[in-house]
Design a protein around this nucleic acid. Structure first.
Lengths: 192, 192
DNA sequence: GAGCTAGGCTAACAAACGTTAGTTTGCGTG
DNA sequence: CACGCAAACTAACGTTTGTTAGCCTAGCTC
């Protein structure tokens, strides 16, 4: 049985789901262990403590999200297409790594200060990506926003589909992302 | 000192803030009591148990929100203006009753099944309001949406400003709501 | 085959938790 | 003034929680 090298991955998987469904504090180590199929004390062979599990989920998730965001706009020249790519990616990312995004949002208070700072920094990096993009469009005369930051916050809020997105629904995450991207670009095109 | 008839209101106030900041489970009755300025056991003179406090916050908040939503569109004829009113109200409501909206979203898992059902029903009533509105605009030929439900979900997500709205910021909640309403109506006008 | 390690187990601890019991205090009313 | 009640208190309860200690076993290495 010890050939199963996946225990750590399974812990992260189950923990993500439970932290998402019940919250960090309300998820007990015993419940987590039961979900994985081992005893609570065995969790400590893979993680130093409960906090370390949360840190891994939040930081690894956010790091990967930001990294792929960069990759997806690399080499794309048109401002509109870069923005479209980022919007689609936000939606797709939530579908691909379910729970991680919302945990990072909602369980941030449960993180130790150091990790929380890192997480906030990563999020701000991503936000800066969008702010820059909105600024570029502005200087290029593609749109005219009097409150770009408020719009940016709205865009990000719009893309938080995790709490209703259904894998078995009629639309894929890509399709939903495209719908939002088109919607947003339409509004931007006629902004003043 | 018993002339202070506000203890119950203060409990709800402090509990809202703590449930929002730390989550329901992570908020202890002792911490709540300390915030109010009484002992933990004294909380049980005002509420039967911890759960009852959460129920009050979620259900009363949602009930009030839905009620005023109805009032705000009553007598408004133009579809676009009704939608604008609902969008502004969503933003304003979060600023007026801080925490309540996000608690209802995030701590729903901590609610007993019965109250959870009631809360979901209220939320669905509100969502139906927007769906109807979007449908009306469609039949009147004001916009053409191929996926109105997805758009509705996006609109609601956009209005969740509670986690960044700043009372002392440059913009009032009304102003932010107007910005979003204008943005959304612009996108709708050119949708196909 | 001896010995090490990874990864599981059982049992237990100390702290923290929601809640209850019983008491005290001060105000308003008959 | 006696009484009832609202609202606070102190003290304690039983449970749950994160975590630790110590033991066992299978598989790999020398």
């Amino acid at each position: 049985m010890s050939g199963e090298r996946r225990t750590e991955a399974r812990i992260l998987e189950v923990a993500s789901r439970l932290f998402y469904e019940r919250g960090y504090k309300a998820t007990t180590m015993r419940a987590l262990a039961k979900g994985v199929g081992i005893e609570a004390s065995s969790l400590y062979h893979h993680f130093s403590d409960k906090q370390a599990i949360l840190v891994r989920i939040c930081l690894d998730g956010m790091q990967g999200f930001y990294q792929e965001a960069l990759e997806r706009i690399e080499g794309v020249d048109d401002v509109r297409e870069r923005l479209r790519a980022l919007i689609v990616w936000q939606v797709v990312a939530e579908a691909r790594h379910p729970y991680a995004g919302r945990i990072a949002d909602e369980q941030m208070h449960a993180l130790n200060p150091k990790s929380r700072k890192q997480l906030i920094a990563l999020r701000e990096d991503f936000e800066a990506l969008i702010d820059d993009l909105l600024g570029e469009g502005q200087t290029q005369g593609i749109w005219h926003l009097s409150h770009p930051r408020v719009i940016r916050l709205g865009l990000i809020g719009m893309c938080k589909v995790e709490h209703w997105y259904d894998k078995k629904g009629a639309l894929t995450a890509e399709q939903i992302g495209e719908i939002y991207a088109t919607f947003i670009l339409q509004a931007l095109a006629y902004s003043r």
